[in-house]
């Protein structure tokens, strides 16, 4: 699984430009799938299993895209101005490396006018790609780039860019593979959705949920932690197991889904934590309000430094996330029975 994390995290896939990562994921999942679709917004939708009498049509969503930048202007001296694609924070930009989809590399610096004391806003930042004029600049308005950072293992921890949400993508791929290769029984018709444009507003998840019309939805994404110096007082820590989301900044999980996830974790003795995230949200929000409504939950992989180029997860948490997801998908969903 580590090699898959490394491979997926390194492939660029900023919001709206998920072609390369989609192709890579498709190659991994195709052998396991009953059906593979790429829809109008570029979501990769993989169907697996048949709906049994006690089963549900279930949508599982992990987003393909990562935050990135888009060039807005090349100035007379060849410096590239840019805007964020998704939640890009200036604090994580300065001194960083980016790679454009056309292969051009660049470094980010900032207008020195206001000095070093105050964090400059994004429009005071620029990318230096080594050009001297618009004429020799290999980047133009509208070109997109991702942050560059190599893959590293620090003990049990894994650090690289784009773990938000390539780690969720890996968890879905791995769960699908286990279900398929180990011939596990599932009463459900499962749709593994590798969604697009999550970082700019859950856009792919909303349209794919409409297409699938599921009985239940789960997103698999990262969540922040409360275990760093003077960090937020959040009851989620790295290495203490997958987090089961109760609420985040944009959604309240369906309480029945939360109970089902917690009791499944307890039954299989998988460590887990309850999550309340104050800012941010996931694909589950978009799924919940689709059509006549969908009961949703979210399985979160705890992750430090989210939206920085050095996102960090614990490998044990990742393994437990896969175990929990497989356990959830292999069995009936008791709480939703009897629903009209």
């Amino acid at each position: 699984m580590k090699s898959l994390i490394k491979k997926f995290a390194q492939i660029p896939g900023p919001s709206g430009y998920e072609n390369q990562i989609r192709a890579a994921v498709r190659a991994e999942v195709e052998p396991c799938a009953n059906e593979v679709i790429v829809d109008a917004l570029g979501n990769l939708i993989v169907r697996w299993g048949e709906k049994g009498p006690d089963g549900l049509r279930m949508m599982l969503s992990a987003h393909l895209d990562e935050i990135g930048v888009i060039a807005t202007h090349v100035d007379k001296k060849g410096f590239v101005r840019f805007a964020g694609l998704g939640g890009v924070h200036p604090a994580y930009c300065v001194g960083g490396h980016v790679r454009f989809l056309n292969g051009t590399r660049g470094v980010i610096s900032f207008e020195k006018e206001s000095g070093l004391k105050k964090m400059p806003s994004l429009d005071k930042l620029f990318i230096d790609v080594g050009a001297t004029s618009p004429g020799d600049c290999p980047v133009g308005v509208g070109d997109v780039a991702v942050f560059a950072r190599k893959y590293q293992e620090l003990g049990e921890k894994i650090v690289t860019k784009a773990l938000d949400d390539r780690i969720g993508v890996v968890v879905l791929v791995e769960a699908l593979r286990q279900l398929h290769e180990e011939n596990l029984d599932s009463p459900h018709e499962l749709y593994f959705v590798f969604s697009t444009q999550e970082e700019v507003g859950l856009r792919g998840a909303g349209t794919s949920a409409y297409h699938i019309n599921p009985d239940l939805g789960l997103s698999v994404d990262v969540t922040s932690t409360g275990d760093t110096p003077k960090g937020s007082k959040m009851e989620v820590r790295l290495g203490e197991g997958p987090a089961i989301k109760v609420r985040d900044g944009g959604m309240l999980s369906d309480p029945r889904v939360v109970d089902w996830m917690v009791s499944t974790a307890e039954e299989h003795e998988i460590p887990c934590q309850l999550e309340i995230l104050k800012g941010g949200t996931t694909d589950a929000r978009a799924i919940q309000v689709t059509r006549a409504g969908v009961p949703v939950g979210c399985l979160s992989v705890p992750c430090r430094y989210v939206h920085s180029p050095s996102e960090m997860v614990d490998y044990g948490d990742v393994e437990d996330s896969v175990r929990l997801l497989v356990a959830l998908l292999s069995d009936q969903v008791p709480q939703l029975e009897g629903e009209e």
């Binding site: 829809d39 109008a40 917004l41 979501n43 888009i70 060039a71 807005t72 202007h73 805007a83 133009g140 308005v141 509208g142 856009r203 792919g204 909303g206 349209t207 794919s208 409409y210 297409h211």
Partner: peptide
């Protein structure tokens, strides 16, 4: 010309998210 990427929104912002998605 390419409009500079940035803020703002047009009807496309609603159209492309309707139903199963519209390029």
């Amino acid at each position: 010309q390419l409009r500079q990427p940035g803020g703002g929104g047009t009807d496309a912002g609603a159209i492309h998210r309707q139903r199963a998605g519209v390029p």
